[in-house]
Design a binder for these strands. Structure first.
Lengths: 345, 345
DNA sequence: TGATTGTCCGTAAGCGTTTTCGCCAAAACA
DNA sequence: TGTTTTGGCGAAAACGCTTACGGACAATCA
């Protein structure tokens, strides 16, 4: 079943069939109609590869992420796919599993599939691989890591305003002992979030906050929170570098016999789906994956379509208030902790 | 950059280049070596579509799921991709968003991309669309919905044994008032799970359990649990049709002032990632997505590779014990509920 | 030594599209 | 009526690969 059979049935040339499929050029409505009927009658689906071979465009866009299993990504993937499909394009998703070797493999796969553009949403990225794309004039877009050039764009998330809103909220509730559980410091996005927090406290003249390092996973948040709880001065509010970390912290607090938000307030970051369903529901800084996906696709597709250039795109963050934050407890010393422990025992 | 340039540099014919790329046939090690060097020197990446056009095989497999945002799927996608890539194949993921129209679109996309096989992991599926694949001799594999035929396989999950293990566990803890929150009854998998539960109780001579219908989402579980709590005879243990439902139930119980597992035990189904991190961690029936993905890919790839036939594949379920289940409370009447409420008030 | 076999490799014909020309007929003009 | 313009369409050459076929050559056999 190919374009020739359609042409034969419609009594036109293959060129005309191709033209009506591509909706382009000048084809008489009647001819177009005739061809359409033939296509439907034969249940003809044009072979995308052959189309790509002929036209030099694959209508395929690569989306490289660290790990689809990380709750941050599914929404991103979904939104990206949605908008791509809306524009008649396809998406090739690839997981690097945080592994540089896999990343190299992903790049190779993209190159072989001759994608029309790649969105790179991982933190780790060998610059050598980037040039591999750029040498072939393949548009790129990065999330927070990269710089706008000819055909490559960069999305910069406004972490600062989100962190600022969170701190303002916390401070407004009377908290002064505020801690931060960061992500792994080797990640740029983790560093940026942390720096935003430090800068924010400084700006407000609040002493440097307590710091612990997590790993952007639940277990890291759990461990970091345990360390925070064992300090002489316990924080009354904790900001986490992402929601997974916050969930881990929630668990650690729960196990220690303290309550959220009565004893300690928690703020997350990202607003992943489950954050609305934890006990208590997590107050968090929302980073719209939908927005990121939209911008990323536009950056890639627009370059091809409208011949635009690589650019920087900002995406905002916003505070989502739920139940994990509350007024600072009157007694903020370690004493209360013992009480709480006794109550449970 | 194409195979011809490689051939020129290596001073061989394009056929020889093709042969060494495909690792096949008889090519002298020296020639092969020479070609390899040329490929690396030119950073040549063979054009997959042209390969597909020439060979009639795309090395692409479709994976149709309902919604990547549903926590059940990401692991499935990841495992499927992993094993596909290990075998030198690619995966095209498509979301139907539970929408028949989108499903039709997905099918069309798969057909245009000339995938070598499709794994259909959605519940809703128009039989008319299935034949679209079968007419073109494209291997198919279904999850729990479908029947083995020429080139189409079916994976059947052993829900019964999982439910059985859960009920045995619960009964072993002394519970006799056991409720079940089902999924939407229009879903086959939801019906099967429910039937397994009913049959299991019957087999054990325990009276028909309390039933509520959820929607496999958190809010459905929440609502269903509220209804269960307002009954005259409150259950002491609740099985949920999936983990999302169980998480909703957890929330509702928490809000009512009761505790899990002291007052009510909860068992989920699926063992999605977050279930290990809820408060308390969820006892649940594990359904290995990894296993499903592995079997599904084999079913598709094996048919092509070893010329096998469509078949039925079973995958087991197993009980994961965590903290949401405990011994039946001594006083199981509504009285305790008031107490608990008072304590909280 | 001539015939036979087998190995390695090149030639060239596809695969299913797109797209550049250029042709033809009809419309517009003189 | 003859000439130019135009719009719709067909012929055919790509696109980059795979693969059937066959040729050249060396090794083996009678």
């Amino acid at each position: 079943m190919n374009i020739r059979e359609v042409a034969r049935l419609a009594k036109v040339s293959t060129a005309t069939v191709s033209r009506t499929i591509n909706g382009s050029d000048k084809v008489t409505p009647e001819t177009k109609e005739r061809v359409q009927r033939a296509i439907e009658e034969l249940k003809f689906y044009p072979n995308t590869w052959a189309r790509a071979l002929g036209s030099g465009r694959s209508r395929l866009y690569g989306l490289i992420i660290s790990d689809i299993t990380n709750p941050f990504f599914p929404e991103l993937v979904k939104s990206f796919e949605d908008i791509a499909v809306q524009n008649g394009q396809e998406v090739l998703v690839a997981n690097t599993n945080y592994d540089p070797a896999r990343m190299e493999q992903c790049v190779s796969r993209m190159l072989q599939r001759k994608v029309d553009g790649v969105a790179i949403m991982t933190s780790e990225m060998d610059p050598r691989l980037i040039t591999e794309f750029q040498d072939r004039d393949i548009p790129l877009v990065f999330l927070d890591t990269g710089t706008a050039q000819k055909l490559t764009s960069n999305i910069v998330v406004d972490y600062a305003s989100g962190v600022d809103a969170a701190v303002e909220h916390i401070v407004g509730l009377g908290h002064t002992e505020i801690a931060f559980i960061s992500g792994p410091m080797m990640l740029r996005s983790a560093r940026v979030r942390r720096e935003a927090f430090v800068a924010c406290l400084e700006r407000r003249g609040i002493g440097a906050g307590l710091m612990e390092e997590g790993n952007h996973q639940v277990d890291g948040g759990h461990g970091a929170m345990e360390r925070l709880l064992s300090r002489k001065t316990r924080p009354t509010a904790v900001l986490a570098s992402n929601d997974m970390t916050a969930i881990g912290a929630l668990g650690a607090i729960h196990e220690s016999g303290l309550r959220v938000p009565e004893d300690i307030s928690i703020v997350g970051f990202d607003d992943i789906q489950i954050s609305a369903f934890t006990q208590p529901a997590l107050t968090t800084v929302r980073l719209s994956r939908d927005e990121i996906a939209r911008v990323a696709f536009r950056a890639l597709y627009g370059i091809r379509q409208e011949g635009s250039k690589g650019a920087e795109y900002g995406v905002p963050t916003s505070l989502v208030l739920r139940s994990s934050t509350g007024r600072v407890p009157r007694d903020t010393t370690g004493k209360m902790r013992e009480d709480a422990g006794l109550v449970r025992a």
